[in-house]
């Protein structure tokens, strides 16, 4: 069985990958290593996990001014998430993904899901994000 959900597009793009759902918000500046794509923040429950190539689902980002550069640098190095599904719209993540697209033509879609959809997406194993924000949940 596959199902589709419509999400708000912050930065368009396409991705099809396994899911990594973060249980808590993360600061991508200071709490994340843009050289390796792993979570550095020792207080984060998923500290040490590598987000490279995964569709990363997170409730929100912690708002640091350095976030866009860390996201864009990870994309430049090829270690960024394949895409982001957010529970709350985030200007910083969107700015980072947009800059990487404009400078390097590297695709990293950023979409925002409704509360009801968010929980369902966070439980899925793999997703496909289309350019119009349609998310297809893979067979589980």
């Amino acid at each position: 069985m596959t199902a589709t959900i419509k999400a708000q597009v912050l930065v368009p793009g396409t991705a099809s990958a396994q899911v990594c759902a973060l249980g808590e918000p993360l600061s991508f500046w200071g709490g994340y290593d843009p050289v390796t794509g792993t979570i550095l923040d020792v207080r984060h429950p998923q500290s040490g996990i590598c987000l490279a190539g995964k569709i990363t689902i997170l409730p929100s980002a912690r708002g640091s001014a350095g976030t866009p550069a860390c996201i864009a640098e990870a994309i430049r190095r090829g270690v960024a998430p394949a895409g982001f599904v957010l529970g709350t719209p985030d200007v910083n993540i969107a700015t980072g993904a947009r800059v990487a697209f404009e400078l390097y033509r590297a695709d990293c879609p950023v979409v925002c899901a409704d509360t009801d959809d968010y929980d369902r997406l966070a439980c899925s194993a793999a997703l496909e994000i289309a350019a119009d924000g349609t998310i297809t949940i893979g067979e589980t």
């Binding site: 912050l10 350095g66 550069a69 860390c70 640098e73 430049r76 200007v91 400078l103």
Partner: peptide, 25 residues
């Protein structure tokens, strides 16, 4: 994303993007 109805003029900036965090800067 911020649901702003329009842009407004600003008169001054103090920028942080000069603080290096990677080649992308």
């Amino acid at each position: 994303i911020m649901a702003a109805p329009r842009l407004i003029a600003a008169s001054f900036a103090h920028i942080d993007a000069c603080f290096y965090a990677g080649q992308v800067h």
